[in-house]
């Protein structure tokens, strides 16, 4: 049998790889991919806690489904912004999009 800690460590490492991707990548689409990894790490944690502590409740499933919906909305709006920026500035490098930098 698999102890709970294995799932938690997997989710923690996946979250940190996603965090590195968000902070270090230059391309705005790659940053959004990092956010997806972080959301997936959270989902692993939610489902693992459901399975180990409250298998009779359905709340974790509802949470995960709502996270799916939020992720879809986030990606749709984020990629629309990226495409719009690319159309105006011909770049998607996050450190070159400094129009609002003081």
């Amino acid at each position: 049998m698999i102890p709970l800690s294995w799932y938690l460590v997997l989710a923690a490492l996946l979250f940190c790889i996603g965090l590195y991707g968000v902070l270090a990548r230059k391309n705005a689409v790659a940053i959004l991919m990092g956010v997806e990894l972080m959301l997936n790490a959270v989902n692993i944690n939610l489902v693992a806690f459901w399975r180990y502590f409250t298998p009779d409740l359905i709340a974790a499933h509802a949470f995960v489904v709502i996270v799916f919906a939020i992720a879809a909305a986030e990606v749709a709006v984020g990629l629309a912004l990226v495409i719009s920026i690319y159309r105006r500035r011909k770049t998607v490098a996050a450190d070159e999009i400094n129009l609002m930098k003081w």
Partner: peptide, 25 residues
């Protein structure tokens, strides 16, 4: 959004801090 830009590096210049923060986390 690919266009004809050639990316010189996939990471920005602060990637060392990002790596440190992710490792600490």
């Amino acid at each position: 959004t690919r266009g004809d830009v050639i990316e010189e590096a996939p990471v920005n210049k602060n990637y060392g801090w990002a790596l440190l923060l992710a490792a600490l986390f």
